[in-house]
Design a protein around this nucleic acid. Structure first.
Lengths: 238, 238
DNA sequence: GAGTGGTCTAGACCACAAT
DNA sequence: TTGTGGTCTAGACCACTCC
């Protein structure tokens, strides 16, 4: 039986998780290898099978292990070199950098959805949607143009919003709790209008984030966020 | 007691999870509200407390609920509208789309690191590094230029690598297990050389991923991955 | 048929919070 | 003191895989 280290007061399932991880880390158990069964680990650690089960189940939730009913538990393939970029609200991001955030409403209107927009919203053609165009500034330098269409069914007061006090993002989060997102990062040349608003010349590309948010089974908002390539990038790491 | 829907053969813990989620979705239980205790849910569903426990524990792992020992279980604050982009290896990504991946080695050399490159590698100035330039094709259409510098201390056989059989990525993952990453997504105009390799004209921007990988406390590799904006974007959702 | 994981039970003891 | 979550037990039955 596995010796219990003196003074190790972690719960048993955590000790088992740590043991499995250390065997993998040390290269004793390699990718694709079968590791001991729940039963075996349970006896080894002197615990009930449910306890070993929880340890292995949590590791498999974390993609460290792969479990196959009737067959066994295996070390998962090395995670591919994959990284995650987190995309925040622009106001939060600027403030987190300790800079001043300000936004300027350029346009706020009720428009008939074009065919493609109606399709994106999964609405009937010709239905009205709200449209806003906002420029966000970081220390008085334009950093984002937010070109957004909003579903009136989910955000009826959008036209009355005071964009100097709250962002579209914050409002939508409040009235239409997020249930899903689709997004896409692109490089694009700005339209002349966008270039002017961002104070860049037309030869300079933009980093564009397109984001569609879902709420209560409907499309809540379709946004296109334009950032000047010379002043903006998505970063991250671990 | 909670009625069991006819023919609902999901495990009990999943039924309980679905029930909790639907109450939150419907707005019956709001942010910060306490939800029924494990004991209450167990009786309601006619199951053991351990079963309700598993349902609530998994939801709290998913940040849907917050559990406070001695106090109760509460609906978590709405997640901030933040999204994650996963960045894969290009070969894996193309194959996942069911397309053919092929790569072409343009250059492979040993060069003296410039000052800025030496700084990025945290090496002494003038030390040698390996440099490779590879074009990746998806169905014979160029989709990525991989411009990569590699630390010889961690990948001594890099110059002997057969780039037609394996990618730099795969090799590095094998010999220098990843311990950290820093990356950055940008929009840039291509250099004439990059534009030629990607079969685009110079007026077309590129979506650029710069990635620095760490292994065993050293910088293993610094890569710049150029993608034609008209054929490539990072996407995701949940 | 033997071994594996997937789920579940009906108890138990503990640490902690509210009262 | 009562109720909560955190953990654990020693069984059980099932579906599945492998031989």
């Amino acid at each position: 039986m596995h010796p219990v280290i003196e003074g190790d007061e972690r719960p048993a399932f955590k000790r088992i998780k740590a043991h499995v991880l250390s065997q993998i880390q040390a290269g004793v158990w390699k990718e694709g290898d079968a590791i001991p069964s729940e039963q075996a680990l349970a006896s080894e650690f002197g615990v009930a099978r449910m306890t070993a089960n929880r340890a292995l189940r949590e590791l498999s939730d974390d993609r460290i292990l792969v479990r196959v009913q009737g067959s066994g538990t295996f070390v998962a393939q090395q995670k591919f070199q994959s990284t995650l970029v987190e995309i925040h609200s622009i106001a939060e991001e600027v403030q987190a950098r300790g800079h001043a955030h300000r936004s300027e409403l350029q346009r706020l209107e009720r428009v008939k959805a074009s065919d493609s927009l109606a399709a994106e919203f999964e609405l009937g053609a010709g239905k009205a949607v709200f449209h806003s165009l906002v420029v966000h500034y970081e220390n008085e330098l334009p950093i984002q143009v937010e070109d957004r269409f909003v579903n009136p069914a989910l955000a009826s007061e959008y036209m009355q919003l005071d964009f100097s006090k709250t962002t579209a993002n914050e409002y939508l989060m409040r009235v239409a709790p997020l249930s899903g997102v689709r997004y896409c990062i692109e490089a694009r040349m700005p339209t002349p209008e966008i270039a002017t608003m961002l104070h860049i010349d037309g030869g300079q590309p933009c980093l564009v984030l397109r984001r569609k948010t879902l709420s209560r089974g409907q499309v809540a908002s379709v946004a296109m966020l334009w950032h000047p390539a010379n002043r903006y990038q998505f970063t991250g790491g671990f």
